[in-house]
Design a protein around this nucleic acid. Structure first.
Lengths: 193, 193
DNA sequence: GTCATTTCTTAACCGAGATCAATGAACGGC
DNA sequence: GCCGTTCATTGATCTCGGTTAAGAAATGAC
């Protein structure tokens, strides 16, 4: 399977594509492959792209006196619209690859041009926008009301894949605790099972 | 000073009003007075009003097995646009008065009518919208990175008025801790000063 | 004023996460 | 395969907030 097929697959989730459209998407050729630890965006930069993770895993984080504070993970078929992309302000956070990735990126102009040419795709892009706002990010209320152990259990329930592909210390950062604590939590949960 | 003057004062922050406009606002008569503990909105209701606190203090909270979890306080000149107002979904939280209040409320239709008649006020309403989105609400990042003590100190710095007019146990709820803990924190901060 | 209710403080105890330090396991480069 | 680095676990100790319970202080009704 060719990289471009992943993008075709992504669109096929939302609509049935004609052979012509498939060829069209393949021709667009807007997929790049990234190595582990490559950056999509750095602090201080203004994002000029939106992204779609086709394969791999990406983290969004910022630095607090040298320490990574992970805010979100993105995996297969997750769209990424950096705040900096809409605000045009320098980004406050980094976005980088946790694994080798295949990622499709789109500038505003390119997307506009594409949609004008092929309006049949507009509803999809609207849907993507919707799924972005109905994001899976932990809310402040959740964070206030649940203990780190609860939050880890929730993560196991809702995104079991993450725990198996992402280093534990990153999961800990995402949960807002120290790696040692996560290790103990896991031990505790295991022995009380 | 008459209640209606408060609304005139509010608009005067943003623009200079003609005598005619002042009379106009006074005539609108959309200010209600509320007693302590009166509700502006209850869980399950659909909000049909936006609010503007002219005097007093209002809290937004939800119940977690009978316990109040305060999410936000609104005081003089704070606009309140309940999520339920825009989404037209039943509200997930309560809004009620911590003190006796004077509050101006507006329905969508009334506001539209008013703005059509007096387009000079449109920029103000846009500004209010802006100030709503650039809200002072605690973010998840802040919550993750700061201890309850830090958060209390921050509150003292940014909204010293609140601490002096709102019962301590509500401040504690807002900070996400128990009243006893806040009491200890205050003691600790005092003795290390 | 008195009395009841609400609010705040204090104390004792507990448990969970932070921190520091050491060891073990897994991974990547060569 | 070997070696070094990265990552995960474990133990000891500490801090802080939660919990329970009691009492003090402030507030409000009458």
């Amino acid at each position: 399977m060719d990289n471009q097929d992943l993008l075709v697959e992504y669109f096929s989730q939302y609509m049935t594509l004609s052979e012509e459209e498939i060829q069209l998407i393949k021709k667009e050729d807007i997929i790049r492959s990234y190595k582990k630890n490559d950056f999509l965006l750095k602090e201080g930069q203004v994002a000029h792209c939106c992204f779609l993770v086709l394969k791999g895993c990406v983290k969004r984080y910022y630095l607090e006196d040298g320490q990574e504070r992970i805010m979100e993970f993105y995996t297969e078929n997750d769209p990424i619209a950096p705040v900096s992309y809409t605000s045009k302000e320098p980004s406050e956070y980094y976005i980088s690859c946790v694994e080798p990735c295949l990622i499709s990126s789109g500038t505003e102009e390119k997307t506009q041009r594409f949609l004008q040419q092929f309006p049949r795709f507009i509803p999809i892009f609207v849907k993507i926008g919707d799924s972005l706002s109905a994001k899976k990010q932990v809310s402040l209320d959740d964070y206030k009301n649940f203990s780190p152990e609860d939050r880890y259990q929730k993560l196991l329930d809702t995104r079991p894949d993450l725990v198996n592909r992402v280093p534990q210390y990153m999961i800990a950062s995402y949960l807002g605790i120290q790696p040692e604590s996560l290790s103990r939590i896991r031990k505790r949960m295991w022995s009380s099972k």
